[in-house]
Computed example of a mutant assay.
Amino acid sequence: MAGVVISSKYPPNIDPTRTPLAYGDRAIPRLNRELNDDRLLVRQRAVVSLCDHLHDPEHIAEALRNDIGMSLKNLLKDADITVRQKATECLFVMAGHALGRDSFLETESIYPVAKLFDDTEDIARKNAHLCVMRISETPPGAEGIVKAQFVGLLVNKLQTELNEIKELILDTLHFCMREDTDSALEAKAMEAFTMLLKHDLPVIRAKAARDIMDLSVPLAGKDRAVACGSLQLLKDMLTDSTKEVRANAAGAIMTITITTKGKYTALNCECIPPLVALVDDMNSEVRLNAIKALTCLSEAPEGRQKLLEHVEKIRDHENDHIAAVAKAAKIGVKVITWLP
Rank of each mutant, 00 (worst) to 15 (best):
L41T: 12
S183G: 11
D281C: 05
V47H: 04
D316I: 09
L294C: 10
L40A: 05
I272C: 02
S71F: 02
L91P: 04
A61K: 13
K327F: 12
E89R: 02
P11C: 07
R43G: 02
V286W: 00
P140V: 05
N66P: 07
S241D: 14
R134I: 09
C269K: 04
E143P: 04
R304Y: 05
A249R: 00
V42W: 08
I253S: 00
Y23N: 12
L219N: 12
P12I: 11
G332E: 11
A95Q: 01
G332I: 06
T239S: 12
D316N: 15
L75K: 02
D223Y: 07
P340D: 14
A324T: 13
A98F: 11
A328M: 07
I6M: 11
I336N: 04
C90F: 08
K263I: 01
D171I: 09
D171G: 10
H97T: 11
E58Q: 14
L35E: 01
A189P: 02
A2E: 15
S109E: 06
C51I: 00
A142L: 03
I253W: 00
L153M: 13
K166Y: 09
C51K: 09
A208I: 05
L275T: 03
Y23I: 10
T239V: 14
T337K: 13
L168K: 13
P57E: 11
L162T: 12
I291D: 00
C269M: 05
L185S: 06
G24Y: 10
P20M: 10
P112M: 09
H129V: 15
K263G: 01
V146Q: 03
R304H: 10
K327T: 14
L54K: 03
T265F: 00
L197H: 02
I204W: 03
S241A: 14
S183Y: 03
L201F: 08
E167K: 14
D316M: 15
L297Y: 02
L72R: 00
R30N: 12
I212A: 01
I212S: 01
L75E: 01
D37W: 02
P12D: 14
T337W: 06
M177V: 09
E302S: 10
R84T: 04
L307T: 07
L76M: 12
F193C: 08
S8E: 15
K157Y: 13
D320L: 08
H53M: 14
E121K: 06
P112I: 04
S183M: 04
V226R: 01
L105T: 10
L130S: 04
V4M: 14
A277V: 03
G152N: 10
G152E: 11
S216Y: 05
A323N: 12
F193A: 03
P273G: 06
M133S: 07
T181Y: 01
D37V: 05
T255C: 04
C271E: 02
V93G: 00
A128D: 03
I28E: 04
A293F: 01
L105S: 04
R205P: 00
A252D: 02
L238G: 03
I336L: 10
A124V: 15
G144S: 15
L50V: 08
K188N: 12
K9Q: 15
E299I: 08
I322P: 00
L231G: 01
N283S: 08
R304W: 06
R246Y: 03
